[in-house]
Amino acid sequence: MSLIMPVFAVTIIVFGLVRRVPVFEAFLTGAREGAQTLLRIAPTILALIFAVGLLKSSGAVAVINRALAPAANAVGFPAEVVPMALLRPVSGSGSSALLMTVLQDYGPDSFAGRVASVLAGSSETTFFATTMYFGSVGVKKIRHTLLAAIAADVTAMLVSAATVRLFFG
């Protein structure tokens, strides 16, 4: 598993060479686009990290966790990850900020850290994607789209906790 990234990267580069792509220039073009993406999400990240910083230092996180713990425990979901799960469908960079907070505070290899990781990898910013795609063509009646999308988010939440328990005991 640890080789997966290097193997993937080398495959891409070798395939590019075989197809006679100017790989270095292509890389630079892509990396530049990446930098632009980063600049675009930077203000959101800053805003959300700020809010999360306030939440933690004020003791609000502890209050929220205590309130949510019974419901979260009932379905086997770590209460520490609930704030991230709630923000996930709304804001991608916002939930990245919360993911980072969970990884830092509880450790990436803790139960909460693993569940947060799996959830981040298996869910999307539902409301953003729905609004963007339907908004782009002016469709207003989206029928059962949100129902199906939210059901998928809830499924990802439940299954992420279940798989982490299954794989890591």
Partner: peptide, 28 residues
Amino acid sequence: LRQSTGSAAPFEILVPVWISSACALAVA
């Protein structure tokens, strides 16, 4: 992100991620 926060095996969550996404996609 996992590696930068000191994970011993950043990609150990890969299979759970696939399972969880597949379930979510199936439901959707």
